[in-house]
Design a protein around this nucleic acid. Structure first.
Length: 929
DNA sequence: CCTATCACG
DNA sequence: GACGTACGTGATAGGA
């Protein structure tokens, strides 16, 4: 028996997945995930070392899938089309697993166009012919076809179980040789093998036992007794035949490695020790007889650096002023794979900004600044400092910044992307953004601009960065960056690139540890270039129309002002809430004056003034009108004219990915997400947003997306049915609550139900609902109780969500985005109340935000695929996307856009409710609605 | 710089 | 029983 050769064939792919799911998300010192690699290496070790002589391998190979496209895709285009992508923290482990295999001196075998299963089949057949024993290390059911009495078996190393013909027959009810017939009938939803509807393993086994194979079954299908089954089989003959072909293993391939070359050798110690040491697999090093403290030198020149151990030394940063120095930095950067990167400009607004310099960091502590457009600190009067010619420097930098093998790490890199794209034609890629990493990791923990570079450096690295004011001055003495002397500029600018690189090293392992890599890589990073393009395109406005509106508003305001002053009996500043309050509630003695607890001033907000207006007081009515005009004039008409970029003649907003606690975007400078629409006067502003001639604006918005998500997340059958059937959701709610028929519903009752539906999304309270509807509080409480009675799932959702927030400290969206709720355990009940309502709202608002983000990353490629790249996405307003499209392409583009938006959850998720998108087009934004 | 107000989803 | 309360943003003007 000792002469008996025994080949072990390891199904590499399936094993990686199993190791990944079993082991915790370990990372090596470089922050690269290695959990699956560790599991894999351990298994190989076991196979080599621990099996006894009679069972163990004399020959061994690991088989991988080379690519996802194989000959089966040629046979059937839907094959494995539903396969979700592997988890993000598994992807970088694929090459490492191959490294591990080679470190053990075990051959890796893979072949473009065929699957690991086929390669395994080919080797199995070849070895069997030679009279060898074969063990397939896998638990994949497709491979069970190969099991054979006495000569071929399988080994499930996770369960430590051998699978022979008896085990196969137990599982499938037929001998191994017939397993292919069974698989063809059963189908496989994961691989998209159709099979026959309603046929599982039991039925398949019965049919194959009776008829022998699928062809005979098809030929004699009319003999089947059960009518439904007979019909299904007769209707699926094509599917059965294609399935039979798909599950069949291909074994005509010429072996790339001859059988004998797979002979198991003792792995040479040194490369193995180096591999194990590099990834910190200490227990295995010990087994190998190498003490981990005495681990050989690090394997790569890029020493794994402990971020905190490299001090910040500003004097070590280099100012690059010659072509030679720049060339040498570019060369160094090319080898480092991951480059810290930042740009300096003369303006915070990136559409107006001019590039002033670029900084690079190749490893923590090693960074430089390349000034490109610095002038003397006296401006153009003095002599400019020596620097590389801008064009020449950018020509040297462009290949680096566009090199697909060098990741450019920036903090808020969208800004840098735009500056370099704008007038320099450099498309920086691939990118990483440490601001977005910090945002997904800590969303909700910080407020305001706390994801910016300076606070992040303080928190994550314990480092105080040089404040901008320190180099550029403050107030009226502040200068633009091109006037900062090069030595100070270098300290400041190079530090930013250095910090970005260090933050990357700090965040990357945190992302993996918290399992937030997918959120970052799917919902944040890919949006950066998409938003950059939207901002760059901008949107056209009718300046003349805006100016006319502004003048009209000014006239009407002046008229109102005179009337208001007459009514008040004195002149005062209508725009001052304080003065207005004194007039209304002090001097005139109107009823209902509420003083705010904070400032002690009377409240004069819309609600208050409207209440007074109902009682026919003239002055508050006129103030309301005046306020509306003042708002429209200053915030919109005047501001939009001023925002038109003279270079492009369009308005370019800036979208922030890291602004909100829920995952929504924010728009600023100017904010184009709050352009008026609700009143007729306001809609006139929206009419000034126009398409270029020959084009139309196209608006595509999700209908009731948050309520649909509520129905799905809280699992409310009535809501789900209403959405499924296209029923008016608010009328349905009213009908359920008040027992009135949907037909001929009183609009006021529907209005109440609508307010309640929205209140629920906001984490309803009786007080809030009462105020919103202008009804007594006990009546509002009664409404809420009735709602909970009719839809008990809502209360369960609210309780479940609050509990999750308390126990884990965060809540999450359907796609895994987290919002931390630090105040959920506050002793102050008002703070706690806020946190609870925000916790209830965040999964709903945030899931909607995730969905439109997914759509936005897919829409441009989808349009391109249809030759519709002329349709350009311009704006996002939370549940709406605005495009500018050549008029003759609008219909086709609308079809593509609708499809992408409606299917944005797939393939990760299937909602219990349909998503519906309304599309409209028109010459203006108002008309597109 | 903070507060109040109001535009949007 | 009292406490204050709808969720998420950004821009503007007034006033300390």
């Amino acid at each position: 028996m000792s002469e008996q050769k025994h080949l072990y064939l390891v199904d590499g792919s399936s094993f990686i997945f199993r190791a990944y799911h079993v082991l915790p998300p370990l990372t090596n010192s470089e922050g690269i995930p290695t959990g699956a690699v560790y599991g894999f290496a351990n298994m190989l070790w076991k196979l080599i070392d621990e099996l006894n002589d009679t069972d163990g391998p004399t020959h061994l190979a690991v088989i991988f899938d080379a690519s996802s496209h194989t000959f089966r895709n040629e046979m059937y285009d839907q094959y494995k089309a539903n396969r979700p992508d592997p988890p993000e923290d598994l992807v970088p482990q694929f090459p490492l697993v191959r490294d591990a295999t080679r470190a053990f001196s075990v051959p890796c075998i893979e072949e473009e166009g065929i699957e690991a299963d086929d390669i395994i089949a080919c080797y199995t057949h070849a070895a069997r012919k030679e009279g060898w024993k074969v063990t397939i290390v896998s638990s994949d059911k497709d491979l069970m076809q190969l099991v054979d009495d006495g000569q071929v078996d399988m080994l499930d190393t996770m369960k430590n179980k051998r699978i022979g013909p008896a085990e196969v027959e137990e599982k499938f009810g037929v001998p191994p040789a017939k397993v292919g017939e069974i698989l063809a009938l059963m189908g496989d939803s994961v691989d998209n093998i159709p099979g026959v509807k309603g046929v599982g393993v039991k039925t398949a086994a019965r049919l194959i036992t009776e008829y022998g194979d699928t062809e005979t079954l098809i030929a004699r299908a009319d003999e089947i007794k059960q009518p439904k089954l007979r019909e299904n089989i007769q209707n699926s003959t094509e599917e059965i035949r294609i399935s039979r072909k798909l599950v069949d293993l291909y074994c005509d391939w010429n072996l790339t490695e001859p059988l004998d070359s797979l002979e198991l050798k003792d792995p040479p110690k040194e490369p193995l020790a180096e591999f194990l040491g590099k990834h910190g697999f200490k227990s295995m090093l010990t087994k190998l007889g190498v003490r981990s403290s005495g681990t050989p030198k690090p394997a790569t020149p890029q020493t794994p650096v402990n971020v905190e151990q490299v001090p910040f030394k500003h004097e070590d940063y280099e100012t690059v002023t010659t072509v030679e120095a720049l060339t040498s930095w570019v060369e160094e950067a090319r080898t480092c794979g991951c480059l810290g990167f930042d740009t300096e400009t003369n303006d915070l607004n990136c559409m107006r900004a001019e590039l002033v310099g670029i900084s690079l960091a190749t490893r923590p502590g090693r960074a430089c600044y390349v000034p490109l457009a610095h002038v003397s600190d006296e401006g153009l009067l003095g002599e400019a400092p020596e620097q590389v010619d801008c064009e020449e420097a950018l020509a040297l930098l462009k290949p680096l910044l566009e090199d697909p093998a060098v990741q450019k790490v920036g903090h808020n890199i969208k800004y840098d992307l735009l500056v370099l794209r704008n007038r320099h034609g450099i498309d920086v890629a691939p990118i990483e953004d440490t601001m977005l990493m910090g945002y997904v990791l800590d969303c909700g923990k910080h407020v305001g601009g706390q994801y910016g570079l300076d606070p992040a450096a303080k928190r994550e690295l314990g480092h105080e960065t040089i404040p901008f004011k320190e180099v550029a001055g403050t107030g009226r003495n502040q200068v633009t960056f091109d006037k900062v002397p090069l030595d100070r500029a270098t300290e400041y600018a190079a530090e930013d690139a250095d910090v970005a690189l260090r933050l990357y090293q700090a965040f990357k392992p945190r992302l993996w540890r918290d399992r937030m890599t997918t959120v970052y890589e799917r919902l944040e990073r890919p949006l950066v270039p998409v938003l950059a393009r939207m901002e760059e395109r901008g949107i056209a406005v009718d300046r003349a129309a805006l100016s006319r509106l502004s003048a009209d508003y000014a006239d009407r305001m002046a008229a109102l002002e005179t009337e208001i002053h007459e009514l008040a009996g004195e002149e005062f500043n209508i725009g001052s809430p304080k003065q207005l309050g004194e007039i209304l509630f002090g001097k005139m003695g109107l009823p209902g004056g509420r003083k705010s607890s904070k400032t002690g001033a009377y409240s004069t907000d819309q609600d208050t003034l409207e209440t007074l207006a109902v009682d026919d007081f003239e002055l508050p009515k006129k103030v309301l009108d005046w306020r509306q005009l003042a708002k429209l004039k200053s915030t919109y008409a005047d501001a939009l004219v001023a925002a038109v970029n003279p270079r492009t003649n369009r308005v370019h907003t800036s979208f922030t990915l890291a602004a909100s606690t829920t995952g929504r975007l924010a728009s600023s400078d100017p904010n184009l997400q709050n352009i008026p629409i609700r009143t007729d006067e306001g809609a006139k502003i929206r009419e000034t947003f126009i398409a270029e001639s020959g084009n139309v604006l196209l608006s595509a918005d999700y209908s009731q997306i948050e309520l649909r998500l509520l129905a799905h997340i809280a699992d409310i059958p009535q809501l789900k049915q209403a959405f499924e059937g296209g029923v008016d959701i608010h009328a349905m709610t009213a009908s359920e609550m008040f027992g009135v028929p949907v037909e001929g519903m009183d609009p006021m009752i529907r209005r109440d139900a609508k307010a309640i539906n929205f209140g629920i999304i906001y984490g309803i309270s009786a007080f809030g609902l009462a105020r919103n509807l202008g009804i007594p509080r006990d009546k509002a409480a009664d409404y809420i109780n009735r709602y909970f009675e009719r839809f008990p799932g809502i209360r369960e959702y609210m309780n479940r969500t609050k509990l999750m927030a308390r126990e884990k400290g965060y809540v999450e969206t359907l796609f895994g985005r987290r919002t931390y709720t630090p105040l959920i355990k506050s002793q102050r009940q008002n703070e706690r109340g806020f946190a609870e309502r925000a916790a209830i709202n965040a999964p709903i608002q945030g899931s909607a935000a995730d969905i439109i983000r997914r759509a936005m990353t897919r829409i441009e490629p989808a349009l391109q695929g249809e030759g519709l790249e002329a349709a350009r996405m311009l704006l996002q307003v939370h549940d709406e996307l605005i495009f500018e499209v050549p008029a003759d392409k609008a219909e086709a583009a609308g079809t593509v856009i609708r499809k992408v938006m409606e299917e944005a959850c797939a393939p990760v998720l299937e909602l219990d409710v349909p998503l519906v998108v309304d599309v409209g087009t028109g010459a203006t934004w108002a008309a597109a609605h």
